[in-house]
Simulated assay, not measured.
Amino acid sequence: MPSAPPPVPPPQPISDLPHLTRSPPLPDFFLAALSLFVFLSSSSSRSFKLPLLCIQSNPRRFLKTPSMSFSHPNSGRTPHDAHRLHPFASPQSLSDWLKPRLPSDSFASWGVKPGTKNVHNLWLELSEGETSLADSTPPIRTVQVLSLRIIDNHRRILLESHQQLSDGTLRNRNRPLSEKMKPNETPESAVYRAVKEELGSILGDSDCSEIVKIVPDSYKMKIEERNSASYPGLPACYVLHSMDVLVEGLPKEDFCTVEEEEYANSEESSIADEAVSVKKHFWKWVSLDSLDF
């Protein structure tokens, strides 16, 4: 009987063959590029656009964005232009917008509680570009404020002790001369306007650019967030621009001044008549050594 043929050895795995080497896998990015090439070349009539990514840097929406520009004070912007920057056609429409966003008892006290202002004041501030409101609950009122440290040669600073308002009430202040800045107004130009408006009745017709001297390197800026005393329940963000100044011709003792109508030049004179305005300012000199600001 013939002998059986020897058994056939099992096939050797490819990985064990010494004369063959495994090709490294194609990188993922190469496969992706190849797929994209095939896709683009498959049809000459097909257009392909990569989508743009839109990133929202600030999710909070503002009803009016402050546009303070300290390098270009003469922008040609008028109060009438500022009026169109907020969406409220009247103080009533502003009131309707505020009511569901503020505590009812706080909002009801506007213009009623001594020392507070009313919705007509806030509407005028928006119209003049002096204030912005964030579209939030509650809204946040942002104001650019000039704070003037008027000093004399006896190491004293002039403070406004209190104000008399148009409704006959008194409002305590106990702070340096403060004034809301206008749109695109530089701190330097705001200095002369503030002195003229709040101290002009005692300085007469003097040229403020000649009697007001700004102390070099005294400018400072800081931000304060606190509840508004003028508008209870409405949080406020104050961007304070402070400077030290010398003013010639001021009395050496305590005195008071009469301010011109705050919105005398406003196109909305009937609304200005309904607002609470400041009639008199009462001033006192205080030693710098007794203060901590």
Score class of each variant (00 low, 15 high):
Trp123Asn: 03
Pro232Lys: 07
Gly111Ala: 09
Leu124Phe: 01
Glu128Gln: 15
Leu170Val: 06
Arg155Val: 07
His154Phe: 13
Leu126Asn: 10
Arg226Gln: 10
Thr169Gln: 11
Ala108Gly: 10
Leu234Val: 07
Leu159Asn: 07
Arg156His: 06
Glu197Ala: 12
Gly129Trp: 11
Asn153Tyr: 08
Ile211Phe: 06
Arg141Cys: 08
Trp110Thr: 00
Ile151Ala: 03
Ile157Pro: 02
Arg193Tyr: 01
Ala134Glu: 15
Arg175Phe: 14
Gly233Val: 00
Ser206Ala: 15
Leu126His: 08
Ser228Glu: 00
Tyr192Phe: 15
Leu126Ala: 03
Ser218Met: 10
Pro139Ser: 09
Lys182Gly: 05
Gly233His: 08
Ser136Tyr: 03
Asn118Met: 06
Thr142Ala: 11
Lys113Phe: 09
Leu126Val: 09
Leu126Asp: 09
Tyr192Met: 02
Val212Trp: 01
His120Trp: 01
His120Cys: 07
Leu122Ile: 04
Tyr231Ile: 01
Tyr192Ala: 04
Ser228Asp: 04
Asn118Gly: 02
Ile150Pro: 01
Lys222Gly: 08
Lys117His: 05
Ser178Gly: 09
Tyr219Asp: 07
Glu185Cys: 04
Asp167Cys: 07
Lys113Leu: 15
Leu133Gln: 01
Leu146Gln: 03
Ser218Arg: 05
Val145Cys: 09
Ser166Gln: 00
Glu160Cys: 14
Arg149Gln: 05
Trp110Leu: 04
Val143Pro: 05
Lys213Ala: 08
Ser104Gly: 05
Gly111Pro: 05
Gly111Glu: 02
Asp105Leu: 14
Asp167Pro: 06
Tyr238Trp: 15
Leu133Phe: 11
Asp167Arg: 08
Ile214Trp: 01
Ser104Asp: 13
Gln163Asp: 06
Asn184Ile: 13
Val215Arg: 05
Arg173Asn: 03
Ser147Glu: 13
Ser166Asp: 03
Arg175Asp: 12
Ile223Leu: 11
Ala236Gly: 13
His154Met: 10
Asp167Ile: 01
Arg141Thr: 00
Arg193Gly: 00
Ser228His: 07
Ile150Phe: 01
Asn172Leu: 13
Asn174Arg: 12
Ala190Glu: 00
Arg156Tyr: 04
Lys113Trp: 09
Asn184Trp: 14
Val212Gln: 02
Ala108Arg: 13
Thr169Tyr: 07
Ser147Ile: 07
Ile157Val: 15
Ser218Trp: 08
Ser209Met: 12
Thr131Pro: 02
Ser189Pro: 06
Lys117Trp: 10
Lys220Phe: 03
Ser209Tyr: 13
Lys213Asn: 10
Ala236Trp: 00
Val195His: 00
Ser209Glu: 15
Ile214Thr: 03
Ser218Ile: 10
Gln164Trp: 06
Asn118Ile: 00
Ser228Ile: 08
Gln164Ser: 13
Leu124Glu: 00
Ser106Ile: 01
Asn174Phe: 09
Glu210Ser: 14
Val215His: 06
Leu170Phe: 14
Phe107Gly: 01
Val212His: 02
